[in-house]
Every structure is written in structure tokens, then in C-alpha cells.
Design a protein around this nucleic acid. Structure first.
Lengths: 230, 230
DNA sequence: ACCTGAACACCGTTCAAGT
DNA sequence: ACCTGAACACCGTTCAAGT
């Protein structure tokens, strides 16, 4: 049976879950599709092009109810305030959505970071982020820079999270290696922090760092305004 | 002539600068060393082990005068205050140093992010970061999480910076592709932000995001303290 | 201890030729 | 339009054998 682009794409995403990004190979993909080696190249110009399409598929819908905001939220029940959602909460929600999207497939965050360019869902995410930051009072330049900062954080954190999850025993061995390398004499603070690393606290850890960046944006945004906003 | 570990390491770093991370190959390295293919494996167990050693070499000295702080700064002239350097400035300085270290070699940031584990200079950096944050009043847990946030930012930003630099014409082509993909109707804010992207502003861009994160840490740190610290 | 030579088991990509 | 078959130019890693 004839293949089409979408079948190749979804087989590639399935293979990603099964094998991981490092074992995702054009040849294994062809085998999974029951087709010869070069066949996939008719549908995707290169492996890079396939990876980028995969990355954008991951981001499907991340920015969806964000742009329309409250009017939509009423219908979807995602929020139920009479007031428009504050910009900082929207930012946080969008960041959480990006993280969830990246977590939806094995090595999703690394996949995303390997895709250099401007596909539709990634653009929609960027637009939503910057729009919301502008709404929070940032200039176009500051908004785009702050959006970068947020995105680096989300992606960096999620890459680490997925790498830890992929380790043989769920990260316990890696944690052990780290514990072994940290000498309590030379690295007293690292040693003290070690207790908080193995952690099933990924959600809290993520939220903490996100709140840090959002608080930084808030303080920077209001610094140029009326002395005391309340 | 016989090789030693250090010769392999420094040839690898030179090859990184010449060829970039993607073209850094055990075989090319052997050729550069005038030696057979398998020879390098006597000095490094695997390519991964070599990459990690390279990454740690990059970080040589990043944390050096940071731990000793002011006493040292007097002698080196890096700062010349009569007072101890405030924790937030130290954090910023350490982050700038990490960035410089990563920039010192082509693809340095990607190299660092590919090295999963705890080598001496990376540990010293982590210790310095967390120690300084604790000095700023964070708990061990918060300090280690905040350190992660900062490091994700530095690495994420620097990866992007080096990727842009490595593009054929210094990023102009990439910027053009982006400009082409952004429809001013659908993505008005992205479109407005586009003006700030091509930019030789890397230094400013980095400083802006860093200051965002540091401000976030400051506001979170003081939130649990006396109402108004000054 | 340190290296050679040769092999093993893979890769991404291209492309004439088929249907 | 879509795929096969086969090749090209590579990879990382291992390992007996040499010195």
C-alpha cells in the first residue's frame, strides 16, 4: 500500500516513543513502515525535515485557547473567572502547556530543541507568548527577549527531566554517580542540595523555576511604571 | 611518538573549533593525531567520555575567584569595593563567566549540554552557584532549583547564540527564513519583534534575560523576609 | 603500555530503474 | 507519483596481534 506524508510522520512519532531519539533512524523507520530504505525520502527531503515536522506535531494546540483568552476559557472551562486572566498567569499556563506537549513523547524536549525553525505551531506559541508579555506592559523587544528566556527554561528543564526518566532505573543510578562525585568537604552546598535531587518533585521543581522567571519579568515590567502599582 | 590523554584532549578541542561538534569524529581525530582509528580508544573509553572531558576542560576556572570572593577580588582587581560583593552580583558574574567559557570554543554550549555528568569544574561551578544563592537567603532546595534555572538559561541562550553564529552567513539566512514564515496578519507581535532578532545584541540579550532571572530570585528570596528590607 | 589492521554492525543520502 | 535496489561515503566500537 502507498504511503503518505502523515503515515510516515506518525510512524516516526511511534518509533520515537519506542526507541528514543538516538535510535530513531531512517532505516528503522523504513523497516517499521514495511518499505525500502530510500522510500521515506520521497516524503521528507531529509531526516532533519522529518524531525522538524515531528517537533511541530508535538506542539499542536499549545497556543490554542491562549490567544482568544477569557472568552474561550468560559466555554472550555479552563478558567472560570469573570475577569480577564492576568498576563502573568497566562504566561505560566502557556509554559506549562509547552512542557506538557514536550512530555507527550519520549525525548520530546530534545526533539524540539533540535528543530531550528519556524513551523506553524512553534510560531503560534511564540506569538502567544510575546503577545501576552506585551499585554503585561513589555516593549516588543523586551517581550521577545523575555519569551526566549522562558522558553529556554521550559526546554532546558524538560530535557533534563526526560533524560533522567530515560536512564536505566529511572535516574537512581545517575543520582548515585553524582552522590559519589560530590565530596562534602569540597562541595558542602552541593552535598546539602543532593537530598533534593533524586526527587519525584519534577512538577514542583518546574513550577518553582517558572515562578522565578515570571516574578523577574513582573518586577522588570513594573519597574518602569508608576512607583507602586497597588 | 607516543600519545597521552592530554594530547588527545587538546587535539579534540582544536578539531572542535575547526570542524564543529557534528563533524567531530573519532576517525577525524585519529587522522589529525596521525594515528590509527582505534588508538584513541586506549586513552578514552568512548566518544562520550572524550566529550565529557572536553566539556569539563571548557569550564576550567569558571568558579575560581568566586568562592574566595572579595578577599581575592582585591588582588585580582576584578572588583574593588571595600564591601563584600552582594550575592546577586556574584551570581550574575558567575553566569557571565559560564557563558564566556562556553563561547571559548565552537559549539561549546552544545558540548556542555551533551555532557551529562559530574566532572570537577562543573561541580565547582554548581557549588559556587548554590553557595552564593544560600548566602542570598535561599534554602538548600531553593538554591539548587534556582541554580538549575540560571544554568538552563545560560546554556540555552548560548546554544542559540552559537548556532546562529555557525549558520553560513552569520545568521542572516536564518533570519530571512524566519521573516518569510511570519505573517504580519497572523503573528503581529512576532512580526514586531522580528526587528530585534538579527541583532549583534547578543551581549545585551543575554544580560537582559539573566537580569530577569536574578530579579526573580531576589523577589522570591526577600518575599519570605522582613516586609521591606531597606 | 600503547598502537596497528581489520573487521562488525551500523548510519544518512542519492539515484537509476521500475510500476 | 511513488517505490525498489543498490551503491557511496561515512560512522563508533572491538580486538587479536604486534612492538
Amino acid at each position: 500500500m502507498r504511503l503518505n506524508r502523515d503515515q510516515v510522520l506518525s510512524a516516526a512519532l511511534d518509533l520515537l516513543d519506542e526507541a528514543g531519539l538516538d535510535q530513531l533512524t531512517m532505516r528503522r523507520l523504513s523497516t517499521a513502515l514495511g518499505v525500502q530504505n530510500g522510500a521515506t525520502y520521497w516524503h521528507f527531503r531529509s531526516k532533519q525535515a522529518l524531525l522538524e515536522a515531528m517537533a511541530d506535531t508535538l506542539l499542536t494546540g499549545v497556543a490554542d485557547t491562549l490567544l482568544t483568552g477569557v472568552a474561550d476559557a468560559r466555554h472550555t472551562g479552563e478558567a472560570d473567572l469573570g475577569e480577564p486572566e492576568p498576563w502573568d498567569e497566562r504566561i505560566a499556563r502557556l509554559a506549562h502547556r509547552l512542557r506538557r506537549a514536550l512530555l507527550s513523547r519520549r525525548d520530546g524536549a530534545r526533539l524540539f530543541s533540535a528543530a531550528f525553525f519556524p513551523l506553524p505551531n512553534a510560531l503560534a506559541y511564540g506569538e502567544a507568548m510575546i503577545a501576552t508579555l506585551c499585554q503585561g506592559g513589555l516593549t516588543a523587544r523586551d517581550a521577545s527577549w523575555a519569551a526566549d528566556t522562558l522558553t529556554y527554561y521550559v526546554v532546558g528543564h524538560t530535557i533534563e527531566e526526560q533524560l533522567a526518566a530515560a536512564l536505566p532505573d529511572g535516574g537512581a543510578e545517575g543520582a548515585a554517580r553524582l552522590a559519589e562525585a560530590v565530596d562534602p568537604q569540597r562541595h558542602p552546598h552541593l552535598f546539602a542540595a543532593l537530598a533534593h535531587i533524586p526527587a519525584p518533585h519534577h512538577e514542583d521543581h518546574f513550577a518553582y523555576g517558572l515562578q522565578l522567571v515570571v516574578a523577574g519579568i513582573r518586577s522588570t515590567a513594573t519597574a518602569g511604571r508608576v512607583a507602586d502599582p497597588r
